[in-house]
């Protein structure tokens, strides 16, 4: 099957995203139990996400007074579509890519910028205070993490002398970017947690806001939103594995297996962080992002540029 054909593209992207979302859910239950109770039950972890999804699907959809119904329905679809577009740019093995286009990193950046639109729409269209506050919180968060995210991706593209994700993977044949640019991956993961409003940065949908943008959502649309949010997390991990961990390159195992392994490591790291690190207050994160993370990302760009020369 040609992966760039319409059918191949749908199969590949949908397969990666849904498998990734399930893995995230399982890891979430397993690591949550491990940190809380000190042990884990694998069968419980494998079943719990499916049970919860089935329960949510049977729940009656809630309604609010005069919501913007179309925008409300559009938000999860937009979020999921942007995650799919981001995944499509990444080669998952030698020659296995839906659209390893020449400006792949820019396409990833544009898709991830649209995440802000999706989350704000989701919060705003419910016509209810808590979701709206969640939407505002996400804008503040997004404006803070976007610069470090863009800068570390630019730094990663410098040694490859190309904006294509495939070329960035190929440029790590001898040395992975995680070693060459030690600042890159940690900054990327912080920004990635913000992108999926995950872990310590989940203030947009956080329990401290009665669920934030999801406060008024239940039933199938809640399932769609939670899935789309996990799709974004998977897209972040897939891109991180390709850009910082050498992508599909590795000894012995075939390319896709290496890619899956590296993505799994990053996903496990992100989910683990969510359970181990306390939720960060937004104003603190904004200050840290603008005074610490952006300068660090700039240092990353300058040093990478000097080395690439």
């Amino acid at each position: 099957m040609r992966w760039s054909s319409p059918l191949g593209a749908v199969v590949l992207v949908a397969g990666v995203l849904s498998a990734g979302a399930y893995v995230v859910a399982v890891l979430d239950v397993a690591l949550g139990r491990l940190t809380a109770a000190g042990h884990l039950r694998l069968r419980h972890a494998l079943r719990q996400p499916l049970d919860e999804t089935a329960l949510l699907l049977l729940t009656r959809p809630s309604r609010t007074e005069r919501p913007d119904a179309q925008a409300w329905a559009l938000a999860p679809a937009l979020l999921g579509a942007m995650a799919a577009a981001a995944v499509a740019t990444v080669p998952l093995g030698r020659g296995i890519a839906v659209a390893d286009v020449a400006d792949g990193i820019v396409l990833f950046g544009a898709a991830m910028a649209m995440v802000m639109v999706a989350v704000y729409l989701h919060g705003w269209s419910a016509n209810s205070p808590m979701p709206l506050l969640g939407g505002y919180r996400f804008i503040a968060l997004a404006l803070s993490y976007e610069m470090p995210l863009a800068l570390v991706l630019i730094a990663a593209a410098l040694p490859a002398e190309s904006l294509s994700v495939g070329a960035i993977v190929a440029s790590q044949h001898d040395l992975w970017n995680v070693v060459r640019q030690p600042l890159g991956l940690p900054l990327y993961l912080i920004a990635g947690a913000g992108l999926a409003f995950w872990g310590p940065l989940d203030t947009a949908d956080g329990p401290d806001l009665a669920g934030g943008t999801t406060a008024e959502v239940s039933g199938p649309s809640r399932v769609a939103w939670e899935l789309a949010r996990r799709f974004v997390l998977v897209a972040v991990a897939v891109m991180g594995a390709a850009v910082f961990l050498g992508g599909w390159q590795g000894p012995m195992l075939p390319g896709p297996a290496w890619m899956a392994l590296k993505t799994l490591v990053l996903l496990a790291g992100l989910v683990w962080m969510a359970h181990r690190v306390a939720r960060v207050r937004l104003e603190r994160f904004v200050v840290v992002a603008w005074t610490v993370l952006i300068p660090l990302a700039l240092v990353d760009v300058f040093v990478s540029g000097a080395i690439a020369l």
């Binding site: 820019v106 950046g109 544009a110 910028a113 649209m114 802000m116 997004a142 404006l143």
Partner: peptide, 9 residues
């Protein structure tokens, strides 16, 4: 792509 990136924000 940069236009979309810029305008989303």
């Amino acid at each position: 792509l940069v236009l979309v990136l810029m305008m989303a924000g």
